[in-house]
């Protein structure tokens, strides 16, 4: 285990965490507004496909990103139409949209590119890596932080922006109120559904960006079902990290690191399944931990109520 290897794993982890952070920030807003969107995976896949399509048609990654965001927005419109407008079951719509994304992207890729499986072409322009010259001479930091794809840095900036959005603007409050006490929000004269639409829009944009990063960031290609469960990992980061963008991002980094480690040890012939399991397992453990703590609190509350109850009744049960 030399330093180079460790730095390599850490740097891979930073890279792997980026889609989780981008999607997670969107999912966090959506969840705090009360919608558990389990189709983050599908949103991201749609973004990834249309990023490649845009970049291929116009030979420009900027247009690719625009395509991705636009497509994800249309997808978000669909999600909002069914969940907010028609009040359909969020999980059913989520599962259906995941199915739709995975089938529609293959269908489109056969329609437009006439291939299935994966599509790459020299015309596709990728998102450039960012080289920071001032880091060149600093040994460890250079290897760790330099020459990542642009979205890696953008995602870090996004964390700060979202922190401000959640904790320093009224919207953060509205989102949480829409999720936790919609009636209370409604009485203040703010339409809950409007807030949910805004949250849904933010979430769609973030998923579109993450999709673009996935297909144009390093690979410059679209692969069938290339999200490979990343949407669900982001979802677990959201659930693990709660509504705080910073804790969510830290969780995402840890999950990214777990992915990075799995990638490296897989190459060395060690089973990677157990490291790949970690994000899901830690999320479940965190849920249990939180739930146990909460139930203890409620039990003590209940026993104290019961005790006062029995006291007032003169101890007769």
């Amino acid at each position: 285990m030399n330093l180079d290897f460790i730095l390599d794993v850490l740097s891979t982890g930073l890279r792997m965490a980026t889609p989780f952070i981008l999607v997670g920030l969107g999912g966090l807003i959506s969840l705090s507004a009360g919608d558990l969107n389990i189709s983050l995976e599908g949103f991201m896949l749609i973004g990834a496909f249309f990023a490649v399509l845009g970049s291929y048609l116009f030979e420009s990654y900027v247009i690719g990103i625009c395509f991705a965001v636009l497509a994800a927005l249309i997808y978000g419109l669909l999600f909002g139409l069914f969940t907010i407008k028609l009040k359909a079951d969020v999980f059913v719509v989520g599962i259906a949209l995941n199915l739709l994304a995975s089938e529609a992207t293959v269908f489109f890729s056969r329609l437009f590119f006439n291939v299935r499986g994966s599509f790459s072409d020299p015309r596709i322009e990728g998102i450039p890596n960012i080289h920071m010259a001032f880091l060149d001479d600093i040994p460890v930091l250079d290897q760790l932080l330099n020459n990542h794809s642009a979205f890696v840095y953008i995602s870090w900036i996004m964390i700060v922006i979202f922190w401000f959005l959640v904790y320093r603007t009224p919207y953060g409050f509205y989102f949480r109120a829409a999720g936790e006490h919609p009636e209370a929000l409604e009485t203040t004269g703010i339409r809950v559904n409007k807030i949910r639409w805004i949250a849904n829009t933010i979430c769609s944009v973030m998923c579109g960006l993450a999709g673009a990063h996935l297909s144009l960031g390093y690979l410059k290609m679209f692969v069938e079902d290339m999200t490979a469960g990343r949407g669900f990992i982001a979802l677990s980061a959201v659930i693990f990290g709660g509504s705080n963008p910073v804790t969510m991002a830290i969780t995402s980094l840890l999950f990214g690191l777990a992915e990075g480690i799995s990638l490296r040890i897989q190459n060395m012939g060690i089973p990677s399944q157990f490291t790949l399991m970690l994000p899901y397992l830690t999320t479940i453990l965190a849920l249990i931990f939180r739930a146990v703590r909460k139930s203890r609190k409620t039990t003590t509350l209940l026993t104290s109520i019961a005790l006062t109850d029995t006291e007032t009744k003169g101890g007769k049960l």
Binding site: L78, F82, L86, K87, A88, D89, V92, V93, A96, L97, L99, L100, S102, E103, A104, V106, F107, R110, L111
Partner: peptide
């Protein structure tokens, strides 16, 4: 016709049905 169209149709079927139910409830 690309065989993946059927998957798209199944997803559409589900969305139509959820939509139909809730439209009628409305």
């Amino acid at each position: 016709v690309p065989s993946d169209l059927t998957g798209v149709l199944l997803a559409a079927l589900i969305l139509f049905i959820t939509g139909r139910e809730f439209v009628s409830i409305l």
